[in-house]
Nucleic acid binder design. Structure first.
Length: 255
DNA sequence: ATGGTAGACGATCTA
């Protein structure tokens, strides 16, 4: 079962490229972030035509997450149960083909020390609380998303430039590690323990041609999902095309 | 300290 996480940076701006990639790669499940529209504006039919069921937690202009699956989608949950007062659409969870999956768009945080940074850290704490709770189900659970955190300097092309900057600060990395310390694993690092490869390249400053990226998109696996993990990867091909998202899809294969 | 680009939307805000 192939599961992909991808921050599309607008599903409508990306529709042609995205459906093209879907037809070529045909993953079983997609966990999408930054769809950037309300449900009525989401191009559901074009995706359903390719054989996917679609569930959406959207909002106007910003954020928005979705789950696509070739299998029926059950037990839908929009928003973190531990953060029901969050006005932003950043979390969706469901069960499909016997696997619990979630798509999460963790706040960017803007700059260290800002109000948005505080919101990011509080969102991460609410996520930690929820993931602590779901462990008791002892299910295969895959939490894919744009975490907006490069877990270590190995995940950063230019660690000096990013030292204690947003996406790389100590408090953010501690919050990410707190998720791992619950018992979840960063899927990509299981079979690529030392590879310098990234999932996001800023549109600015020619970051893509210079390969000045960061690995901030992750698939976290519960112990039961970890036991079933076969391989993972990051597909950089779509990032090099016209009208690309600034993020690349990250995938894993669960047996 | 600033600016670089992209998307939504219609002036800026978010990233």
């Amino acid at each position: 079962m192939k599961i992909v996480t991808w921050n599309l940076n607008s599903i409508r701006a990306r529709l042609e490229r995205f459906t093209e990639w879907l037809a070529e790669n045909s993953p079983d499940v997609l966990l999408l972030q930054e769809t950037k529209c309300e449900e009525h504006a989401f191009p559901k039919e074009a995706i359903e035509d390719l054989g996917y069921n679609v569930v959406i937690h959207g909002q106007k202009t910003f954020n928005g997450v979705a789950i696509l699956s070739k299998y029926p989608i059950e037990d839908l949950q929009c928003g973190l149960p531990t953060y029901t007062e969050d006005p932003q659409a950043r979390y969706i969870e469901a069960v499909t083909n016997g696997v619990r999956v979630a798509s999460v768009y963790i706040p960017n945080g803007q700059d260290v020390g800002t109000e948005k940074y505080a919101y990011k850290l509080s969102f991460l704490e609410r996520l930690r609380q929820h993931l602590a709770h779901t462990l008791q189900y002892e299910e295969a659970f895959v939490i894919g998303g744009d975490y907006n955190i490069a877990p270590t300097d190995l995940d950063v092309a230019d660690p000096k430039a990013w030292h204690e900057e947003i996406l790389c600060s100590t408090a953010e990395r501690k919050a990410f590690n707190a998720l791992l310390n619950l018992g979840y694993r960063d899927a990509f690092r299981i079979d690529h323990p030392a590879e310098k490869i990234y999932s996001w390249w800023d549109y600015r400053s020619q970051a893509w041609p210079k390969n000045e990226g960061l690995r901030i998109d992750h698939l976290l696996l519960s112990p039961q999902a970890t036991d079933r993990l076969e391989i993972t990867g990051i597909d950089r091909t779509p990032r090099g095309k016209e009208k690309a998202s600034d993020h690349a899809p990250v995938w894993c294969l669960i047996g």
